[in-house]
Amino acid sequence: MSEQLGFFAASSPEPEGLRYAAEFVSLDTERELIARVAALPLQPFQFGQYEGKRRVASFGFRYDYGLRRLQDADPIPHWLSPIIGQVEAFGGPPTHIAQVLCTEYDTGVGIGWHRDKPHFGRVFGLSLGSACKFRFRRPAGEKWQRFTLDAAPRSLYMMSGPSREAWEHSIPAVEQPRYSITFRTMAEPKR
């Protein structure tokens, strides 16, 4: 059986532009961040007239699905500054984080297939509390090419280039409560 799984893994290479760092933050930092996110005035995710099961708080900007545009949001909290510095260093020059989304996933909650809005550039995600399967897919003829990243607690991923623009991503229902902090740059103006 493991030989078959190895065969399938080899046929689905990692999406170009996807980077991953395990143990990006310490266990103590993870605990502190979870406490900070849990203390935020999290609201159910609004997708137009629909309400998602995950709870979120946006900073810097938020996307309004009713108006189909970015809106200003509360300023990014100062307690995120040290982590933003680490994320920007991971992204390299000239990474500048302009938007942050804090998310709480209760047991049994996930997120469906999507791409982040084109207003944003590179996307960084910090996984907290429990692991998740971070799934990718893109059309390949009449089928889908797929890739799954096992995002461990305290890890960071970065999506840029094709992993951000050509691939969709999703998270199946989590088995334990999970938190994430998503950091986004703004998209470069089209020339």
Rank of each mutant, 00 (worst) to 15 (best):
H114K: 11
Q145M: 09
F120D: 01
S130A: 13
G125A: 15
G108Y: 13
G141W: 01
P94R: 10
H78L: 15
T103E: 07
R68Y: 11
R135S: 11
D72A: 12
L80F: 14
A131N: 00
D106R: 10
G66Y: 07
R62P: 06
F124M: 01
G85Q: 12
G129Q: 01
L128Q: 12
H114Q: 03
W79M: 02
I76M: 12
G66V: 13
Q86N: 13
I111P: 08
R122Y: 09
F61D: 05
T103G: 00
P94G: 14
R62T: 15
H96D: 11
E104C: 00
H96R: 14
P82K: 07
P139H: 05
G60C: 06
G66C: 10
G110F: 09
F61W: 11
T107D: 00
R137D: 08
T103L: 12
P77K: 12
H114Y: 03
R135I: 00
P75K: 13
P75H: 05
G141M: 07
V87I: 13
L101M: 09
G125C: 10
I111M: 14
W144P: 00
I83V: 15
R62E: 05
P82A: 11
K133D: 14
R137S: 01
P75C: 14
D106C: 10
I97L: 03
T95P: 14
Y65N: 11
D116N: 12
G85F: 02
F124R: 00
H78A: 14
F61A: 08
R137V: 03
Q71G: 02
F124W: 00
S130T: 09
S81T: 13
H78T: 14
E142G: 11
W79P: 00
D72Q: 11
G141K: 01
C132Y: 00
E104D: 03
H96V: 15
I76Y: 10
